[in-house]
Design a binder for these strands. Sequence first.
DNA 1: ACAAAAGTGTTGCTACTACACCCATGA
DNA 2: TCATGGGTGTAGTAGCAACACTTTTGT
Lengths: 225, 225
Amino acid sequence: MATETVRVTVDILVFAVHQGVLEILLVKRKYDPFKSSWALPGGFLTDEDKTLDSAAERELREETNVSDVYLEQLYTFGDVGRDPRGRVVTVAYMALVGQEELALKPSSDSSGVAWWPVSDLPPLAFDHARIIAYGHTRLRYKIEYTPAAFSLLQKKFTLRDLQTVYEGILGKGVDNRNFRKKFLGAGILKALDETSQEGSFRPARLYEFSENDFEKLPDRPVFVF
Amino acid sequence: MATETVRVTVDILVFAVHQGVLEILLVKRKYDPFKSSWALPGGFLTDEDKTLDSAAERELREETNVSDVYLEQLYTFGDVGRDPRGRVVTVAYMALVGQEELALKPSSDSSGVAWWPVSDLPPLAFDHARIIAYGHTRLRYKIEYTPAAFSLLQKKFTLRDLQTVYEGILGKGVDNRNFRKKFLGAGILKALDETSQEGSFRPARLYEFSENDFEKLPDRPVFVF
DNA sequence: ACAAAAGTGTTGCTACTACACCCATGA
DNA sequence: TCATGGGTGTAGTAGCAACACTTTTGT
């Protein structure tokens, strides 16, 4: 029953909603194993990482240039055989980025970093398909019981933007009257004196999420549709 | 940025409700560090453990003789400095055991295994106090959104037993008429033709949880009181 | 008959669902 | 004036919270 020394990696599921489609950031592997396959950004835990959270931040910054985003630990995978190099335990993190961060990395170029629709992924290295499936389920659940969806928007957004995020993650349309009623009645949105002009039609009012008001609520709201 | 080889432990939070009090199983450490302190049962991941789940099962069996119980992964802790021996990443699991398993291990003897009320813990080794606090929060949440409470009961139980489990974990009393109404109306309990005779008063009907009926529900019920 | 816990109904209120049209803007 | 998405109200229903007394059993 030899006590094994294993290696630990921290991998990150970076989610964003682009034009109503839930997408995830993948990197093309430069080395074996699985050279040239798409994989989750991530890497080995190092001495410099004081915490697992900071390791996730570092990996995200190094591999994708993304920082200052919502980040939370998801699940840890450690089956024998999931990495051909030996026993590797992977702590998976989930990051949610707004449309602003979209510009930070190109969408499908030679940099080896690209957004992929979660419902239409390429073949993936290791057991990353399973990890993404797990994260997707968690995300669906999270937006119904937490204000996680706001992390997928810019600071200022329209109610339509918000609804698009919900529809993209839930994979179904929702009634816009009831949707607006629930969020406007929740007391967590600050209406701004600004509008977003998108085309030759009525401009939409912009809102901000008020973390402060959210914390003051007597009960946690539920955003189920 | 030397890639570190770290050691991985799997520790288990074994919860049970005894006489209306939520308790957790702790072991007294036999060796340094933290010799003679109370700690969570657990140990290092070994070559024989094909999965993290099976490592948790093995540790639970070895240290506490408990098996065949509800077990789920909770969270992974990996801060530098949480173990004086070096970098240790701990995958924490949560186990829920019924009153039947109570007999398997004595309650406070020289065996070094004992139940402790979660609201009145002894000084603990490592960062185990923090891990228990996290698990307690998760458990509170779980019984409201899943049938986890049934794992804390014997197969046959009275509605009062069930209510006692909820009250013990939530730390507050609930209205028994509404409580019974919700569970009887949920369609997940099978009423047995048996009663439990506890004293010189009316015997209570026994029920069983029907996993099968639960799975068939169109929507997941919510057990909030 | 008493002590102890099991078991039971109603009412008011809140919150959800379902559903279809008018509004404001730029071209 | 038209095309486009932004924005609004109501009625019916279901589910929840609050609330106190009667029933069954053993002694």
